[in-house]
Design a protein around this nucleic acid. Structure first.
Length: 198
DNA sequence: TCGCCTCGAGTTCA
DNA sequence: CTCGAGGCGA
């Protein structure tokens, strides 16, 4: 694999020393993403953001995961025969093994990340589950999620009777209706902050 | 068999 | 962002 050199950049217009250094540093930085993030990007059927996070709690790098059998995987909460098989199949494909080789030789080989063990025992929202619908004024969706999770709450994306609160924004979808019919308490953005103790 | 939850793809809007 | 499909656990 060809590795971009600092001198390559210096030949380009507009790339004086500092800018070149910044770019190279930025590229290096991009290789330091959490394992769960890379796992999601592999495109294994049934493995999205949440599943990937769960998997990294049991397997701390791709080598370990690639050696897992279907039975091993099914011991994990939320992983059944179907998903387990999809994972085993993915790692058995020669084309995918090549991808892994390339990642490894490019230095993209994350091990388990710092995050995710967000202990749910702390924070004002501990033990509560939230569903967010509509658009928030002061938050991006990711932002609301982080806000809630950092205070011990959990964010899921469909309303059920287990949902503690529905956080309602502008232009809500069908979730608002469902929450109402289930008698789920509805929170405005401000009410959420209040509940969180702001 | 059913309800809950995640995934994944389609839509809409700035 | 929404919403339907389908996997998983009970």
């Amino acid at each position: 694999m060809y590795t971009l050199k600092r001198d390559d950049l210096l030949g380009l217009e507009g790339f004086a020393g500092k800018k070149a250094d910044n770019l190279l540093a930025s590229i290096q930085q991009s290789k330091q993403q959490p394992l769960a993030r890379l796992l999601t990007a592999l495109g294994i059927r049934g493995v999205g953001e949440v599943m990937a996070g769960d998997l990294t709690r049991y397997y701390s790098d791709l080598d370990q995961l690639s050696r897992a059998t279907s039975d091993d995987l099914q011991l994990i909460e939320g992983v059944g025969p179907n998903t387990a098989q999809a994972i085993v199949d993915w790692f058995s494909r020669p084309a995918n093994r090549k991808i892994l080789d390339k990642l490894r030789s490019a230095g993209v080989w994350p091990i388990v990340s710092q995050e995710t063990t967000s202990d749910t025992s702390k924070g004002n929202l501990a033990g509560m589950t939230f569903v967010v619908t509509g658009t928030m004024a002061d938050f991006t969706r990711q932002g609301v999620k982080e806000y809630i999770e950092s205070r011990g709450g959990k964010v899921i994306d469909s309303v059920s009777k287990n949902t503690s609160y529905l956080v309602l924004g502008e232009n809500p979808g069908s979730k608002a209706e469902k929450a109402r019919s289930l008698g789920i308490p509805i929170l405005s953005e401000g009410a959420l902050r209040q509940l969180a103790g702001e």
